[in-house]
């Protein structure tokens, strides 16, 4: 049987916080991508990178990602705290944005109560798992 969706309540609650966070993190991801692509261009991407490498620098500036390009000293010059910070910020913003987006899509089809609690618990665990996995991949690469 079809039921109407429960509209989120007013006030300082999860829906309001995540509404703001979705906007802010979306803008932050675009900004981080722009910084990545501009700095990759500054470092000589026009002549020394293919499109895939440029995309890797844009969205996830990890030295492990650009081993295939012709730029020398990838591990020495670029694997510094600046790019690690960029990666951690991108991981946090992207996975939180994604987990919340999935939660919103699924909650359109779920009623309030136990189902909602289960959905939120599942996506919280998924978010935690992906966050830890991604940070592990960065730290061990």
């Amino acid at each position: 049987m079809m039921q109407t969706r429960v509209v989120p309540q007013r006030g300082f609650n999860l829906d309001y916080i995540m509404f703001i966070f979705t906007r802010v993190s979306g803008l932050s991801i675009v900004l981080l991508a722009l910084v990545g692509i501009i700095l990759a261009m500054v470092m000589g991407a026009r002549t020394q990178m293919d499109l895939g490498t440029l995309m890797r620098w844009t969205f996830f500036p990890n030295p492990n990602h650009v081993v295939n390009s012709d730029i020398p000293d990838v591990t020495l010059g670029w694997a510094n705290a600046y790019w690690s910070t960029m990666q951690f910020l991108l991981i946090f913003f992207a996975f939180t944005h994604a987990a919340n987006g999935l939660r919103m899509i699924v909650e359109d089809y779920v009623n309030r109560g136990v189902g909602q609690l289960l959905v939120r618990g599942f996506f919280f665990l998924l978010w935690l798992f992906m966050l830890i996995t991604a940070i592990f991949v960065v730290l061990s690469s």
């Binding site: 992906m130 996995t133 991604a134 592990f136 991949v137 061990s140 690469s141």
Partner: peptide, 11 residues
């Protein structure tokens, strides 16, 4: 998601 899991698996 697949990319992160694949990167993890490659290591």
């Amino acid at each position: 998601g697949l990319h992160v899991l694949a990167s993890f698996a490659m290591q």
